[in-house]
Deep mutational scan, measured.
Amino acid sequence: DAEELIELVERALKEGREIILLGVRITSEEAGKWFIEWIRRFL
């Protein structure tokens, strides 16, 4: 579910982890915020 995915992304970014989803590397909080917004819009 989308909320679970958002929580995972937020937690990983807070822990300083690198996330790779759909071939996109997300390493900064700014990118994470963009990704979370995208999830909310399309899922």
Rank of each mutant, 00 (worst) to 15 (best):
E29H: 10
S28E: 04
R40Q: 05
D1L: 15
R17H: 08
V24N: 02
W34Q: 09
A2D: 06
I26L: 05
I39Q: 00
K33C: 13
A12D: 01
L21N: 02
I26A: 05
V9G: 01
I36E: 02
E15L: 08
E30S: 10
V24D: 00
I19G: 02
I26K: 04
D1K: 14
I20A: 01
K14T: 06
E7L: 13
E29F: 12
G16N: 08
R11N: 07
L5Y: 07
W34G: 03
S28P: 07
G16P: 04
A31G: 10
E18A: 11
R41T: 09
R11D: 04
L21D: 00
I19M: 04
L13T: 04
E7H: 12
I20Y: 04
I19W: 07
E10D: 06
L5T: 02
L22T: 02
T27D: 14
R25D: 04
D1N: 13
F35R: 02
E3Q: 13
I39P: 00
I20W: 06
R17C: 15
T27L: 14
E30W: 14
E3H: 14
K14I: 08
T27F: 14
L22V: 05
G16Y: 10
L8F: 11
I6A: 05
F35S: 01
A12C: 15
A2Y: 15
I20K: 02
T27V: 13
V24Q: 03
R40E: 01
R41C: 15
E7C: 15
G23R: 08
F35T: 01
E37S: 08
K14H: 07
I20P: 00
R40T: 07
L43G: 02
F35P: 00
I20V: 10
G16H: 08
W34Y: 06
W38H: 01
E7S: 12
I19C: 15
L13S: 02
I36F: 06
I19N: 01
D1Y: 15
L21T: 01
F42K: 03
E10N: 12
L21R: 03
G32D: 03
K14R: 12
E4R: 15
K33G: 05
V24P: 02
L43W: 13
A12R: 03
R11M: 06
W34D: 06
G16C: 15
I36M: 05
E30K: 10
E30P: 08
E30C: 15
D1W: 15
R41L: 11
L21G: 00
L8N: 01
E4V: 13
G23S: 08
L13Q: 02
W38M: 05
A2E: 07
F35K: 03
A2F: 15
V24F: 13
I19R: 00
W34T: 07
F35G: 00
I39S: 00
G16D: 02
D1F: 15
E30R: 12
E15R: 06
E3Y: 14
E4K: 15
R40N: 03
L21S: 03
E15F: 09
E4C: 15
L5S: 01
E29I: 13
L5Q: 01
L8W: 10
E29Y: 13
I19P: 00
E29D: 10
S28M: 05
E29M: 13
R41I: 11
G32M: 14
E15Q: 07
K33R: 14
A2P: 09
K14D: 04
D1V: 14
L43N: 02
V24T: 04
K14G: 07
W34N: 07
F42M: 11
W34I: 08
I39L: 14
R11E: 05
R11H: 07
V9S: 00
K14Y: 05
I26T: 07
L8S: 02
G32P: 06
K33P: 04
G23E: 06
D1G: 13
R11Q: 08
T27R: 07
E18P: 09
L5R: 00
E10T: 13
G23V: 13
R41H: 09
E37I: 12
S28H: 05
T27E: 06
G32N: 06
I20N: 02
K33W: 10
A12G: 04
E4S: 13
G16A: 12
L5K: 01
R25W: 11
L21I: 12
E37G: 06
E10V: 14
L8H: 04
R41Q: 09
T27M: 12
W38I: 04
E37R: 09
L22P: 00
I36N: 01
R11G: 03
L21V: 13
I19T: 02
I20F: 05
R11L: 07
I6K: 04
E18I: 14
